[in-house]
Design a protein around this nucleic acid. Structure first.
Lengths: 157, 157
DNA sequence: TATTGTTATACTCTATAACTATA
DNA sequence: TATAGTTATAGAGTATAACAATA
């Protein structure tokens, strides 16, 4: 541990947090990866990925959406939604129901089982998120959410 | 617009922001995608991706790191760092310098051109980040950063 | 002609295992 | 034996183009 690399590395900034900590985006990215890892862990119990959890939750909350509408809500390409819907439909969590007067579209409807799974998963996710953010005060959590929403609405795109 | 899907979609939550807005993680993810898109746009002017910008910045700030150390700092696998270093070295922005007494390791050193590019890119990124977050008050920006850092340090893993 | 769902495809990102050369 | 860098590869995630059915 006497070579130049180690000497210089030893002089690195205190926090152990690197030279990019000055950027807000950096902090958000690192925080995100923690949240995503936690989310993936929780959803694994339900055999769901983050995106299929989101899709199922939206279908349960707004039954009757078409695939194009759901893809817009999820901000993904509708071509990439197909396999997600295939997966959820294959597990009988949702069905592709026909839409009156337009046989091109599918109305996405949750099954009873889909509703039950969504509610259980949502409960679990909310619970784990509460635990994950317990290191922040309730005021800080609220403030974080408020600031993020303000940013999101103002800066969108 | 008279079919069931549209009727129900019309009843969606006010903000236009979906049913998942209750989760902090959801807000962070959406905010992140805005920040990342902005960052990619800025760095395109320098032919850098986010990860190569981070790598170059760290090498400039802490010259002499080995690839394994840099991979740890970037939180990526060292196998995936190879092509990033290849790219930076191929553009003569950094060099793989030999390390005394250990011929396995490479000390990553910026060239003069690398230092200049890093500084220019950093300036540009900081400027664009300031503009992007101008929709928040200075106090909100500071609070966001503080809360994110507190979360990151407490919740890490 | 335009739109919906779909298929095919390509490109990036990420994770793992195994190799080589050095230690 | 263990470590640093490297290669190869496989799996996600994502974006684009084109097609069939339908409007």
């Amino acid at each position: 541990m006497t070579d130049a690399a180690q000497d210089i590395a030893g002089n690195a900034p205190q926090g152990g947090d690197g030279l990019l900590a000055g950027y807000i985006g950096y902090g958000m990215k690192r925080a995100m990866s923690i949240v995503q890892a936690d989310l993936s862990r929780v959803l694994a119990d339900y055999d769901l990925r983050a995106v299929s959890f989101s899709a199922l939750s939206i279908i349960v909350g707004e039954p009757g959406l078409t695939q194009t509408q759901l893809a817009d809500a999820l901000q993904i390409e509708r071509s990439n939604l197909v396999t997600i819907i295939d997966e959820l439909a294959g597990r009988a969590l949702i069905i592709r129901a026909p839409v009156a007067h337009d046989r091109r579209r599918h109305a996405l409807m949750p099954t009873t089982e889909g509703r039950k799974l969504a509610e259980a998963a949502q409960h679990s996710v909310a619970q784990h998120e509460r635990a994950l953010f317990a290191c922040l005060t309730v005021a800080e959590q609220a403030e974080l959410q408020r600031i993020l929403q303000k940013f999101r609405l103002a800066a969108k795109s």
